[in-house]
Design a binder for these strands. Structure first.
Lengths: 197, 197
DNA sequence: ACATTTGCCTAACAGTGTTAGATTATTTAA
DNA sequence: TTAAATAATCTAACACTGTTAGGCAAATGT
């Protein structure tokens, strides 16, 4: 009865195929262009079988969102691993965050509701980046023994600047110039880090 | 033939009715709940006549977006008028901006693509807030005779922090506490103003 | 009074997410 | 090997969505 295993593996595979097909369509046509029937076409099935794997369309988005947060977390960890001083780590992590937003733009959109309806609230993996950042921030601030509230506040300050900047760049595609982006990124990250040391 | 006038007025009125009905639905059910047939129901017509007034659904969104930018601009001007020193003006303006985002949240969403597909690119009124802010910024910086580029950069720095903070608050409804919002707002606005004086 | 324009509606098309029921294929049991 | 049971898949449909074409009836112009 090893066929049970094969069947389970096959099920897992088409589940992945659905997710991959969905994201492929999104990369080609944007989130607006994603539909159940198009996914079905791509995996060479008809639409109803998708509901054997996902309870509805939102569940697909939620799962993709989760994968996005996992990928982002990995890249944040990679960035942190490249440096020893927490100040350098934090800067590298926000830079990695920035890069993620523009190499996986569609992913970033669904994760943070940029120009589309997102579902990151019900996504548990969304906590991981938050924890990674606050850990490094509290390392930098360890001398002043800050409360969790203060650390949270510092995190949100970083997040606000960088997410805000990412959002304008995605919406006003290309109207904001590279030089301004670089300047603001450098100023903001450097400035806030200095303010928490 | 004064009836021509009356008819023109009537046309203008149902045009407005469409826009008002649309926004009323959005306030009740969110942008997702907006549909042409629901608008038609509300103004007691059938869906196709809407196309006598707007070429499509996006045109309605664009027009609402325009009205949003006009309202925002007015409130920015009101805020500025309450102070003499440009530093105080700038702070009051960003505070008014913040208030606008939470009293007219749905408007803010369509204007800046928060959790929905926006169309502010093709909206000419979107320039007005930008001009209001940069005028005050350049007043503050007049001593250092800055280039337009530098002023633009300062504006985007402000915008990034505040829009970013607004966006998290809209998406993670209520998870971010008042105290953190106030702290970040105060810190960010004060900090940037200090940095440009 | 007739012709023409206008206002508005019904019906339809193509697309969306989603569900129910029938059909086919595969596995199990006798 | 054949019969029964189960699983996999599809077709058809429902209730929506935005949008367009065509027709009817009332108001207008001549």
């Amino acid at each position: 009865m090893a066929s049970k295993d094969r069947i389970l593996r096959q099920k897992e595979e088409t589940r992945n195929n659905i997710l991959e097909a969905a994201y492929a369509i999104v990369k080609e046509e944007g989130w607006q262009g994603l539909s159940m029937r198009k996914i079905a076409d791509k995996i060479e099935y008809t639409a109803p079988i998708i509901y054997e794997y996902f309870s509805n369309k939102e569940a697909i988005l939620t799962e993709l969102t989760g994968k996005g947060f996992i990928k982002l977390s990995k890249e944040l960890q990679n960035a942190r691993a490249k440096f020893d001083k927490p100040e350098d780590q934090l800067e590298a992590m926000w830079m990695a965050y920035w890069d993620f937003a523009f190499t996986d733009t569609e992913m970033y959109q669904v994760m943070f509701g940029v120009q589309m309806n997102c579902c990151s609230q019900q996504c548990s993996a969304a906590e991981a980046p938050y924890k990674l950042f606050t850990a490094v921030i509290s390392e930098i601030m360890k001398n002043s023994d800050p409360s969790p509230e203060v650390i949270k506040q510092k995190y949100f300050t970083f997040f606000s600047v960088i997410h805000g900047l990412i959002a304008i760049n995605i919406i006003n595609k290309s109207e904001v110039m590279e030089t301004i982006n670089n300047q603001i990124l450098k100023d903001a990250i450097g400035g806030i880090i200095k303010s928490i040391q």
